[in-house]
Every structure is written in C-alpha cells, then in structure tokens.
Design a protein around this nucleic acid. Structure first.
Lengths: 248, 248
DNA sequence: ATTGACTCTTACGTTACGTGATCCATTATC
DNA sequence: GATAATGGATCACGTAACGTAAGAGTCAAT
C-alpha cells in the first residue's frame, strides 16, 4: 500500500525533488527502506494533501509546518477556512476578468480608464489588507483564535509559546504517575484553563475530551507531543478524559 | 502627470523595491530626473499593468520581457488570451472547492475518497498538461502561432530568432536609402513571407500595414526595432505601407 | 550478468524580490 | 536660511522553494 516517490509525484503532480525537499525540511518525512528508499503511507498522502491545500493559499512552508505540528490545528475547521479563502480568490479573479474586459475596450479606444481602474482586481492592489489577512491566517489556524491572538505582538507570542512548552514539560514530568493523581489533574486543569484563556474559542468539556483523543489518534500530533516525553500524548488523553468526565 | 516610485507603488500595490528591480532588469525603465529620481509616465503605468496581468498568469519576468519587446505581440489578443486563462483558473478553483467539500465529509467519516480524488483540482495534479500549456503561452504570444511554433524544439527556435535578427539587420543596412527601392521592397517582401510562413496566423496586406504602423506608434516596439539602427522602425513602416498598397 | 528504470545524496544555480545600511534631494517648518 | 522630515538612490547580502545536473547505489526483469 505504500508508494515510492515517483508514484506519489505522478499522483499529486509535485516533483520528486519537491518531495525530497519536504523531507529535508522535515515537513513530510516518510519511512524509508534499508536502502534509503522513501515509502509514503496513506497518512503521508493525507498530510501532503493538507500541505498542498495550504500552499494554494500562499502560506509559506515554514508556517505550514507550524500549523500541522500544532495539535490545536483542527482539520475540518481549517478546510472550511480554506474554502472561504478560495471563494474570496474567486471573487478576485472575477474582478480581474472585469478589469481585462475594460482594458480591452480601452485598448480599442472605446472607453477611458482611470489609473486606479487599471489595477483593480490584482492580488495586492486596492486592498492591501487582504494580504495581511492571509498572513495572519497561519497564526489564526495555529491558535484557533481570530480575535485575541491575532493582535499579539512578537514578544507576547514568544511568551505564549514558552508557556505552551512549560505546560507540556510539567505534564511530561508527571506522565509516569497515574493520570488520576492530584498533580496530574491540576496540571490538566491548567491546560484546560490555558486553552480557554488564550484562545477565543471556548473548549467545552466534550471538545476538550475529543482533543485528547486526537492526540493519540493522529500520528502527527502524537509525534509532536511525545517530543516532550515518550507516551505523553497517551497520558494526556487519559488525564483529559478523566478531567472532562469528572466535571460533568 | 508623471509619478514617483512611491505613488506608483501605492497605486498598484507593488513594492518600491519591485519597481527598482524591474528597472534593473530592463523590464520597466522610466525616465529619470537629473538627480536620478524615477518618473513614471502614463505609458509606463500601462506597461506595468501589462506586466502584472502576465505575472498573474505565472509567466516569469524574463518571458514577460520578451513578450512585451516583440512587436508581434498584440495587446488586445493578449488580453483575450489572459481572460481565457483566468476563466480556466476559476474552473480550477471551483474544482478545488469541490475537493475541499469532499474532504470535509471524508474527515467527518461520512464518505470515502480515492487517492486520486484527494488531489483533484490542484494547479498541477490530474492535468500536467495545463502547466505545459501555460509555459507555452509565452512563446505563443511572442510568435502569434498556436500551431506551428509551439512544436519547434530549442534548436529550431534558435535558428528562427537568428533569421529574425538577420532580416532586421538587412533592413537596417538599407534604411538610409528610399523605402521604395527594389532592395528594400524585396527585403520587406521577405519579411512578409517570413511572418506568414512561420506564424500560423496569416497576415493580410492590411494587417501587415497596420503592423508597420504599430512599429512607430508604440514606443516599446520602436525602441526594440531601432536597436538594429536608429530610424529603422520608421523606415519599415513606410516600406511596409508601400509594399501593402502596391499589391492590392 | 546485464540492462533499464528508479532511487539516493551532494551541491551549486535560479527567480523575484525583502531587508537593511548609507548617502543624496526636496519640501515643510521654524 | 538652517534644519528636520520625508522620499529617493544605490550597493550588498539574504531568502524561499525548488530546478538541474552529476555520480553512484538498487532492484526487477531479461
């Protein structure tokens, strides 16, 4: 069921070199045979699909990587966001077509055009905010807040990511004990508060429980979380479920 | 009526650095004040519009330059071509939206998707020919033939461009004599035959005469042709008019 | 055992600018 | 008439996302 580079390349339309590159920057790292041949699994393909979707929105690979690494990244929500942006893009194309039509008439000497009109509909012209909005999307997707976080400056953001790490570390240090322990439940409580405090989106207890489930179901998230300690994802999932159930 | 860099930048949405760069690569070279300040005229803006249109089609700047330099490049025709490509692009976006919708359902576990389906609608996937077609557009626009030239290989193309130059040179050497001379008319005849032989598009005598007119009306073309000798464009225009009229 | 189709890594090249740094030109203000 | 602002100009180096050989190993099929 696994596929080699060429097959993937042909299937998806990206070049072999691109796949090598994605591997190189740790964006998409397939398993390899003993001889070093890359083997792409079904989930690798799914991830590639995600990457290409995000790329189509002109999000740089670096940010794409961040997005996919953060467990808070919600697939479905993201897809809907992407759809919205594509619809927007479609609008712009229509606007460009409109400008072209005018330009044709202008070239034929049939009408006049103002300088402004000549540049309507381009990626950038007229609405410099659109680009800004696009740049922000990456961040928004990461932290799931279209309100609070989008306004944070760099320093504040740095702080945030530190606390992120700190909480993970704290949880990692507890992971060999029971997930029902007082310390563990307190840490998870902090985690819950933290998510709700920082992200506009308020996690319900159910959503929080599901998030935990995702940590083990999705290999990508598991890997990312387990960087802080093997088995942390599983531990967090359990602790989160207990926490959620105990508070209903 | 002329504008400085910043004003142009704000009007069009491109950066000042980009304008500098376009100047640097001789793509868009405005007049300058004594102090070296760039001043963009109305026709400069029009050219910039052209550039941005072509850029929106993912044509590299090098090719855009070629396109704009070649007198055979027809503005209106090009605009229509661009419109067609934009319409095509719109199709693709719709297709992507469709794929996203499916992916959402898939993520929700509502449906299944084949690997192929997962990559439908991307720039490249499914129809690798589209990209090819886009690459070719530059060439097609340059030589106005969607049939013959598109098939030529590199060597043949080199040859072609040589003959191009040779004919220009021959005409340049005759430009101080009368445009009615036997040699001049023979050279122009060659030119006419040459265009008709090489480009799928058959120039009528009227079209040929108009082409000559364009050589002097449009500064860009004039500049390009006069590289081979000052006044060549004007000379060719005259000779082409006489040639066309004499054969009606 | 050899061929042909794939694969790998290494490494330099490319496009289209971004990002300062440093220095001149012009206009507005005191 | 001196002095800020503001805008412009030229180096010059940096970056992103690959493209493009070059040389060498792998693997299935003949």
């Amino acid at each position: 069921m696994t596929k080699q580079v060429k097959e993937v390349a042909e299937l998806t339309g990206v070049s072999v070199r691109t796949l090598h590159y994605y591997d190189e920057i740790d964006l998409l790292t397939p398993k390899t045979t003993e001889a070093g041949y890359r083997l792409y699994s079904a989930s690798d393909l799914e991830k590639l699909q995600q990457i290409l979707f995000l790329k189509a929105l002109d999000i740089p690979l670096k940010k794409i990587k961040e997005i996919l690494e953060h467990p808070e990244f919600n697939r479905i929500e993201a897809l809907e966001y992407q759809k919205a942006i594509l619809l927007e893009k479609q609008q712009r194309i229509m606007s460009m077509i409109n400008t072209i039509d005018k330009s044709i008439q202008h070239a034929k000497g049939e009408i006049n055009m103002t300088d402004k009109e000549k540049f309507e509909g381009f990626d950038f012209a007229q609405n410099p905010f659109e680009e800004e909005a696009r740049k922000r999307y990456g961040d928004e997707a990461i932290d799931r807040s279209s309100k609070k976080l989008a306004k944070l400056n760099k320093d504040e953001r740095k702080e945030l990511s530190q606390t992120f790490d700190e909480l993970y570390k704290k949880l990692a240090s507890l992971r060999h004990g029971p997930s029902t322990s007082k310390e563990a439940q307190e840490a998870i409580h902090e985690w819950y508060e933290y998510l709700n405090a920082n992200f506009g989106y308020t996690y319900t207890l159910d959503a929080f429980k599901n998030l935990g489930q995702m940590y083990v179901d999705d290999e990508r998230f598991t890997k990312n979380i387990d960087r802080f300690g093997a088995g942390l994802a599983k531990f967090m999932k359990q602790a989160m479920a207990i926490y959620a159930d105990s508070r209903k």
